[in-house]
Write a protein that binds this DNA or RNA. Sequence first.
DNA 1: CGTGAACTTGAGATTTCTCAAGCGGGGTGG
DNA 2: CCACCCCGCTTGAGAAATCTCAAGTTCACG
Lengths: 256, 256
Amino acid sequence: MPGRLVENLQRYGDLTGEERRAVEMLAAASRLVPAGAELVADSDGSADCHLLLEGQAFRHKTLPDGRRQILGFHTPGEVLDLQRLFLSVDYGVSALTSGRIAVVPTARLVETVNTHPRLAHALWRMSLVDASIQREWMVGMGRKSAYARVAHLLCEIFARLQASGLTTGARCRFPATQAHLADAVGLSQVHLNRVLQQLRTAGLARFRARELLILDWAGLASAAEFDGQYLHLPTPTVPRPPDPHVRFQMDRAAGP
Amino acid sequence: MPGRLVENLQRYGDLTGEERRAVEMLAAASRLVPAGAELVADSDGSADCHLLLEGQAFRHKTLPDGRRQILGFHTPGEVLDLQRLFLSVDYGVSALTSGRIAVVPTARLVETVNTHPRLAHALWRMSLVDASIQREWMVGMGRKSAYARVAHLLCEIFARLQASGLTTGARCRFPATQAHLADAVGLSQVHLNRVLQQLRTAGLARFRARELLILDWAGLASAAEFDGQYLHLPTPTVPRPPDPHVRFQMDRAAGP
DNA sequence: CGTGAACTTGAGATTTCTCAAGCGGGGTGG
DNA sequence: CCACCCCGCTTGAGAAATCTCAAGTTCACG
């Protein structure tokens, strides 16, 4: 399934057959990576762009003293360092699971983008969505309580994985540790743990054994002040492979 | 000086004469706006993009209950809602000072971008820099102390205004209130006020009467863990109109 | 000289952090 | 097969950062 990338790009703009072919060329040479691998290093002067074909990863910045901020999570089909197209990268990306990536010389990507304007637009749009997600995280970290922030993160994870067809009912595999979650929302591990317990107790969601289980979507979304708009997910015309047991409404939280 | 936009774009990629002309066409019809005006509204279905020609502005998201997170500050020559090119906007932009903006139908911008790939690239790069700045803010809000965050904000403001030639020596006009700064770094007004006092007492910087004065750049940058890389400012080959009294080193803080 | 917005100050209340220790399961070497 | 160990999770408790509330103060402006 090297089509992961195509499938994902397709969500950001229709592609012609030729464009699809061009994308598949890019992803042709792929490489397996183990869980925990550094896929993109902050400081390497690498001239290559990295496409995530399979597996999950996260983007982060790490301060000299070890404090780490996770900036976002990546699902299959995403470009890990699109920024390299025009700028140097100033963050790292690590694999959360084992997976597969394609490594493409930036020059080649530039070339592809130049020959295929619509492809360029799809990628540009992808980077805009990325920025939109970052903004939402900023609001959380600056102005929301720990409780709301964690709830929001769980909402986002589930919504995105669901959009990628990676959920099963109210459940999805999300192979992060509590330390990862803490670094994502800007809390200490200890406090994050306590907040997770609160969410569990409140009957909203459960995160254990690298698996996320949504118990009450409406409640969770409302606690998180979650409104999926910012994800700019395609409005599912034909709903994805319908999840057997549960079907959640992704647009805006069913207000109380 | 409708050239503000051209001048700024130029920093993100060389433009041919024809491209420059295309940009100036976009900015041809401009409009004066008073301080405090809403330049871009979160929810309007407006089909127009807004270019800031003169004055300063800030981008923000405001929650239903009034809490507000400022997402970034805009200097002259920036596009306020480039995101509109491909997505709906999910934030607002308000004017900090009176100024002048150009309002361009999105369709027209799309067209321009389609006919001028290099222009497109410059804009794309601009949006990538934007995202890079957002990431740096995330690190601050998630993992830095209030003191470091405020110091960092002051560094960034000064660095960016300096790059735009809007500083005079160690001084620059920055017409925000303390409430704005608080909303930018995710602190309460009261606490922000106290942090500013600490910075003043420490002899690092002074922010008063809508003016920012840098007392000790190296010290401020080091307190902020500031490294200007993320701003992706062009390395000033010929240093800008040299500031009379002081010349700061922008690249990385002179470590202690 | 009155007014309002922005800024300052004080003090108690909360949230969140840090440190420190204990628990639990799965993998592994003996 | 078992004991041990490590990593991730959990718990407790005091400490620190930050918030909220509430009351001044300053200063530009009419």
